[in-house]
Design a protein around this nucleic acid. Structure first.
Lengths: 240, 240
DNA sequence: ATATTTTTATGATATAAATAATATTTAAAT
DNA sequence: ATTTAAATATTATTTATATCATAAAAATAT
């Protein structure tokens, strides 16, 4: 459904094609296989806010982010949700659609103008067969993701909201680094930050104010800078 | 003199050693590799409540459950925790220790007298190299686990406790089936059920009473029977 | 340039679920 | 067999966080 629209776009934009050497797929494949990837990939430009695939869609293939940032999220009802991950340059996307369920368990939405590379499922399966190293690393990647997911699960169950917000900020800082003025190099709406910490907009608003008052963070426009890393880390630590 | 000892030892082992054809590992390996597994495996009996490995321990290898049930859990503070999974016969255990972090992110504790098969990491890595099919299926298994973990994450973030308890009971029923008298075929303490639903003992106590009053479940001794599946499922569907 | 939608701001109120406190039953250990 | 420890039962109280309500400011579309 969404894919049809997206596929229609890609013919025009060949200038944004990736360099075939920096993403999860290309760095882990035999170099002899790269031409095959080149022949099968489809580069798809996505606008900010555009949905790449949606929870419940049949899995047709797998994506790699060439440019931009994409949020991976799950819905609950029609106004709540949870962001599970933010995929950036080079990251694999849609791999949750592998496994024995052939429908995406999550949605992917661009947070900024992005460009993703699409590989259809059949070709991806062949790629796995031809590249055991890729299969192995994909397995390892899943192991890491599972570990992180279960950490987050434990945090949702037991860590107070303020700690979860702190944790989210630390993870964003770790993943996206900081700009020249020490701000975390990603722009997120407060609602998205709330969905990342598993809470509501209002609660994020309140605690962000509190963190600012405590001089643990500094917010300029939409840019968040961590000014007291120790205290922020302390907030994520279990008590007693 | 040695003979008697050996005989006794053999008898003990043959009773508890696995048949090399039913677990995750053995069903997915080339049959030619089975003797190698046989030579490297170590069967370990574990008592009820015994810790097989603990969160933070260095990863030495991987386990397969031959007999019994093992809870996989994460700690928070020293009195709180979260059960992530209950591994039963045939299941792989400790695979969260694969990935790039070489310390177990979780603990494994036997819920009943069990028997597990230990494979050291080096040999397991060789096994993966020799058996691409195993690597592939392990990757798929991780994909499934990640999907389940993220479902649970969303539920922890948004589903009310009663729904999460319902969800936990449904998952237990799905996984362990039921005894002749329609009870879910696992005995869990209320505290473990609480840790599985991500809540406290008292809250589980309250809602289990409520579910019993509503004739959705029936509890006899420690055995839980689902008497109204539809209503139980409905509780997991209530949004907003 | 103006209308409309989305995001942000902020206090008041409601409530779900945790915590606390205590009694009792059951299981494990000496 | 008896002490000790662990699991269960139960109600009252507290608190953390969501919900509600409303307004202003930005951003996006017309």
């Amino acid at each position: 459904m969404h894919n049809n629209q997206l596929l229609a776009h890609d013919m025009k934009n060949s200038k944004h094609n990736c360099d075939l050497k920096s993403c999860f797929l290309c760095t882990l494949c035999l170099k002899e296989w790269i031409p095959a990837i080149d022949a099968h990939r489809q580069t798809i430009p996505v606008k900010k806010g555009e949905v790449i695939f949606e929870e419940g869609d049949a899995v047709k293939g797998i994506y790699f982010v060439y440019e931009g940032k994409v949020k991976v999220h799950k819905k609950w009802g029609n106004d709540k949700g949870l962001i599970l991950r933010i995929a950036n340059k080079g990251a694999i996307l849609g791999h949750r659609g592998l496994g024995h369920n052939h429908f995406y368990p999550i949605s992917a939405t661009a947070l900024e103008p992005s460009s993703v590379c699409f590989i259809d499922l059949d070709f991806f399966q062949s790629t796995l067969k031809v590249n055991p190293q890729l299969t192995y690393e994909l397995m390892m990647f899943f192991a890491d993701e599972l570990q992180e997911s279960e950490n987050n699960m434990r945090n949702l169950a037991h860590m107070p909201v303020k700690g979860r917000i702190a944790q989210a900020l630390l993870a964003l800082h770790e993943k996206f680094g900081s700009t020249k003025d020490n701000g975390i190099d990603i722009i997120l709406s407060r609602q998205d930050l709330a969905s990342l910490a598993g809470t509501t907009y209002e609660t994020v608003f309140r605690f962000m104010n509190q963190l600012t008052e405590e001089k643990i963070i500094a917010v300029t426009n939409k840019n968040i800078a961590i000014t007291n890393m120790e205290k922020l880390v302390l907030l994520t630590k279990e008590k007693e």
